[in-house]
Each structure stands twice: as structure tokens, then as C-alpha cells.
């Protein structure tokens, strides 16, 4: 079980810190590095625990950044001028508008309906999973791969190719993969990007100018017309957010109103909450996305509520 018994805890701890710095702080983290880290972590439980420990300490230190500069985007922000140079180096230079799709590239549109879930496999082996009620366009000019997410949510597993950058456009925002798995969700005026593996570059350009950040694993970007924030999310939360890939919705301290809104993304039979007290009730658990009835049944078991079931709606009241 523990093949490296001759290694002391101090040595393992040092190695773990070394991996952590290489992964999050140094430049040039590659897929090969990731594979090597994964294999080191699985080699002995002591390795993984040492890594968890130093990572937890480092994450606690991350919060200091939030304290000092609450109004700005925190994290690995590249100053604007340098950022331009970096962008030119890795990303194809765009025309007049930074986020315009190059004309001439053949474009295809993919749409899922309410409750839909589809996986696209691109020629290069990259995969895009579309969640419910999603619309995206793919343009592959040969020089670059550009996906526009017009609505909904998609999970990207991108085979990195430095010569042909993979770019996701969503409104004023652009995500450029640097070898990644990431989740993008766009609804109403909120864009959320969660990076699960690898690295990506996040750009946003609006009337106030341009901002850029390099995203690392665990980073979650939330962008609205008024704000942009980047925070680290625990792996567990990211896993929850990907529950839909297995057809499951995971709620942690969600209000009933939030849970209902989430179910309503997936189903035509909408859950309507007719009472503000019920709307504020807290729930936890994992439930099947396409089964609002079971959700309502369990709510009735725990809370003193009534449900009126119609073909197009379930109305909850006291």
C-alpha cells in the first residue's frame, strides 16, 4: 500500500509543495505534467494527503488576496500591456472586433431542447457536451476552432493544439483553452466559467475596457454586465456542477426557489412556488434532473407543503 516507506514525511511534504507550485504558480504546466502529478498522487496515500494538506494551506492564503483588493479581479491577472503580448503569442490575432468570428469559416449550429443532453465529438477528438436548452455554433476555419455559446451550458474537453487555438465566445467574454476541461454556462445575463483541468485564458471586453486572467484548476469566473469575479471552488462543488452529465442535480443549501428554477431548466412541467415561506426552505441532496415529481414528493415528506400537479406545472403551496 505504501511503497515509499523509506521516504520521510518531510520529504513527501516537500515534494507535494513542489508539485503544487509547479501546477499553480509556475509557467508551462503541460498535460504530461498533469499525468505525472496524477500518478504521483495515486502512488501512495501519503502523497495525496501531503498534497491535500499543503494545497489547503495555500488556498487559505489565497483568501488574503480577496481581503486586500476586494474590488478588483483577483488571481493570476496579467497586467494589460503584457497581456496583449501574451495574447498575440498564443491566440490568433482577431480583426476589427476582438471577439468577431472570422468570416468565411463554415459554421454549424447545435441546439438541445429542454431536458436535452448531447455530446459532440470534433474531428480533433475534442468533446463538447451540451446541457439542457442550449444553443451553440461551431466554426472551424482550419486555423482556429471557435465555438459561440449563445444560450445554455456546455462542458468542454479540449484536445490542445497550440497551432489551432480553441476559443469559446459568450457575449463580451472569450475563453481560450490552453489544454483544458471547462464548463461554461450562460443564462440571462450571467456567465459562469469553471475550469476543471489544465489552463485557459479568460478575456472580457466591454465599454469599460479589457480584462484578462489566466484560469487554473478550480477557478470559477462569474461575469455579469456589472461585475467580474474569480474565485477558487472546492473540487466537490465543481463535481456537483457537472452532475447534469450523469443526469443528476446536486443541491447544497439551496433554497427551494433555487432548486425549482434549476429543475425548470430541464423540464417542461414547471415547478411553481406560490408561497414565499416555502421558497426560502433549504434543501440538500442529489436528484434526477428529469424527475421533478420525485423531487416534489420528497419535499412533501420533509416539509408541510401541498402540491397541485397539472400537466404543465406543479404548484407548491402551504
Amino acid at each position: 500500500m505504501q511503497p515509499k516507506h523509506h521516504q520521510s514525511a518531510a520529504e513527501i511534504g516537500n515534494r507535494a509543495a513542489d508539485w503544487l507550485v509547479r501546477r499553480y504558480d509556475s509557467e508551462g504546466w503541460s498535460e504530461i505534467d498533469q499525468v505525472q502529478l496524477d500518478s504521483w498522487l495515486t502512488e501512495a496515500l501519503a502523497h495525496k494527503i501531503a498534497y491535500l494538506r499543503v494545497e489547503a494551506a495555500s488556498k487559505r492564503a489565497d483568501r488574503l488576496g480577496a481581503l486586500r483588493r476586494p474590488a478588483t479581479v483577483r488571481g493570476r491577472i496579467i497586467p494589460a500591456l503584457k497581456a496583449v503580448a501574451v495574447a498575440v503569442a498564443i491566440v490568433v490575432v482577431f480583426g476589427a472586433s476582438l471577439f468577431a468570428i472570422r468570416s468565411g469559416a463554415p459554421e454549424k449550429t447545435y441546439v438541445t431542447g429542454v431536458g436535452g443532453h448531447e455530446t459532440l465529438t470534433l474531428r480533433d477528438g475534442s468533446r463538447i457536451e451540451l446541457n439542457t436548452d442550449t444553443s451553440l455554433r461551431i466554426a472551424d476555419s482550419g486555423a482556429e476552432r471557435v465555438v459561440s455559446l449563445d444560450r445554455g451550458e456546455a462542458y468542454f474537453q479540449i484536445v490542445h493544439d497550440a497551432a489551432h487555438p480553441f476559443v469559446v465566445l459568450a457575449g463580451d467574454h472569450r475563453i481560450t483553452d490552453l489544454g483544458t476541461k471547462f464548463l461554461v454556462r450562460r443564462n440571462d445575463d450571467v456567465l459562469r466559467v469553471a475550469l476543471l483541468q489544465g489552463q485557459a485564458q479568460f478575456d472580457t471586453e466591454d465599454s469599460r475596457g479589457r480584462q484578462q486572467a489566466t484560469l487554473n484548476p478550480g477557478d470559477v469566473v462569474v461575469a455579469t454586465a456589472m461585475s467580474l469575479s474569480i474565485a477558487q471552488a472546492p473540487t466537490q462543488i465543481l463535481d456537483d456542477q457537472l452532475g447534469w452529465r450523469r443526469g443528476v442535480l446536486v443541491f447544497r443549501h439551496a433554497t427551494l426557489a433555487e432548486a425549482a428554477a434549476e429543475f425548470n431548466r430541464y423540464n417542461l412541467q414547471k415547478i411553481v412556488i406560490a408561497d414565499s415561506h416555502i421558497a426560502r426552505l433549504n434543501i440538500n441532496g442529489a436528484l434526477r434532473a428529469n424527475d421533478p415529481q420525485t423531487f416534489v414528493r420528497s419535499m412533501k415528506m420533509f416539509f408541510d407543503i401541498r402540491a397541485e400537479v397539472r400537466s404543465d406545472a406543479i404548484i407548491l403551496s402551504r
Binding site: R63, R192, V220, V222, A231, Q232, A233, P234, Q236, I237, D240, Q241, L249, V250, F251, R252, H253, A254, E258, A259, A261, E262, N284, G285
Partner: peptide, 14 residues
């Protein structure tokens, strides 16, 4: 959003 990234809440296992 049903999921939260609020770091104060990461302590809960449910």
C-alpha cells in the same frame, strides 16, 4: 444558482 462557491460553505458535507 443552486451551487455555491461561497468559501464559507465549503465546510458542509451533505
Amino acid at each position: 444558482m443552486t451551487q455555491t462557491t461561497d468559501t464559507n460553505r465549503e465546510g458542509e458535507t451533505l
